[in-house]
């Protein structure tokens, strides 16, 4: 067994207590489900002096449902999101992405908010949240603010959260029923982080795309909305969508952010991603269900 990481553990009972601990300890990390942070500490890739665990913190386990939005608190697990009937009906894109996180064992503990704040490029949920125009509620013991998830991620494993801040919840506007959706994920084997993933919401009237939201993640410094392509797709006939997306001109938009590696070099990514996103867009248009073979 590996060497135990060394830190002080705090288990606050309230959000206020947690925020005070974060303020008092600049070198601290919040622990939600722990499915990323614990292995990172085991591997020696994270070594905070203080770990603030939310396992017995009050007021962080709720899913709040309103007519036009759903608010998911810090300790809500991806498994719960995957299986929640209301989310499955109203925000199926989120449920589909949540169902692709790791294994059931991981999803039983991994949280949506923790997943976003961990900022792993291979996250399933960041592209989904970005596609859904989700906002993050942030608190510190000096106040609160709200920011789009799109502005949360600075780069791999880095966020724009400031010292002492805690992400309290994600607020997701419920897309109306006219949006079609698709989440697609590419892995070398089951259960892996995404080698590439795409979250797509699209509105079609007659045979024309009237609005599209496209988010791509995986081999990128940060998951992004492909805004230029979204604009290009607006008011185009559905039948042209695959060619436009797979044409790949839009890849220039992301070129600076591409992260190639030994198994998926940049020249592979620039060929693969347009085809991958085109297939995702097509499946969304065809209203394919969220399952993949």
């Amino acid at each position: 067994m590996s060497a135990s990481p060394s830190f002080e553990l705090e288990r606050p009972r309230s959000v206020e207590e947690a925020l005070d601990l974060l303020a008092a300890h600049p070198d601290s990390r919040l622990l939600a489900g722990g499915q990323s942070l614990v292995p990172l500490m085991t591997m020696g890739l994270a070594a905070p002096a203080v770990v603030v665990s939310l396992d017995r913190c009050a007021g962080v386990t709720g899913i709040e449902t309103e007519s036009d939005r759903v608010t998911i608190s810090a300790m809500v697990t991806t498994r719960r999101i995957e299986l929640d009937p209301d989310i499955g009906i109203r925000i199926p894109l989120l449920a589909a992405a949540a169902a692709r996180v790791g294994s059931p064992h991981v999803r039983n503990f991994a949280t949506l908010v923790g997943n976003l704040c961990h900022a792993d490029p291979g996250s399933d949920l960041i592209p989904a949240a970005v596609c859904l125009d989700a906002d993050l509620e942030v608190r510190s013991n000096r106040g609160r603010r709200q920011m789009p998830v799109d502005e949360l991620i600075d780069g791999p494993f880095t966020t724009s959260l400031r010292p002492g801040e805690m992400a309290m919840a994600v607020r997701i506007p419920v897309p109306d029923r006219s949006w079609r959706y698709r989440y697609r994920k590419l892995v070398k084997r089951a259960g892996d982080l995404a080698l590439a993933c795409a979250a797509v919401l699209i509105r079609v009237e007659d045979v024309t795309i009237v609005e599209a939201r496209l988010a791509v993640g995986g081999p990128l410094r940060r998951a992004v909305r492909v805004r230029g392509l979204e604009t290009e797709l607006r008011d185009t006939p559905v039948i042209d969508a695959v060619d436009i997306v797979s044409g790949g001109g839009w890849i220039e938009e992301l070129a600076d952010g591409l992260l190639g590696d030994h198994t998926a070099p940049v020249d592979y990514l620039t060929v693969m991603l347009p085809r991958f996103l085109a297939a995702t867009v097509h499946e969304a248009v065809m209203q394919a269900d969220g399952t993949e073979p």
Binding site: S2, L9, Q35, V38, T42, P104, H105, V106, N108, F109
Partner: peptide, 23 residues
Amino acid sequence: GIGYCGACTVLVDGAAAHSCCLL
């Protein structure tokens, strides 16, 4: 030790868990 192999699987309140990834 990092939540992939599952040799450490236990139930926590009935749910499958990698016990190597829980404090």
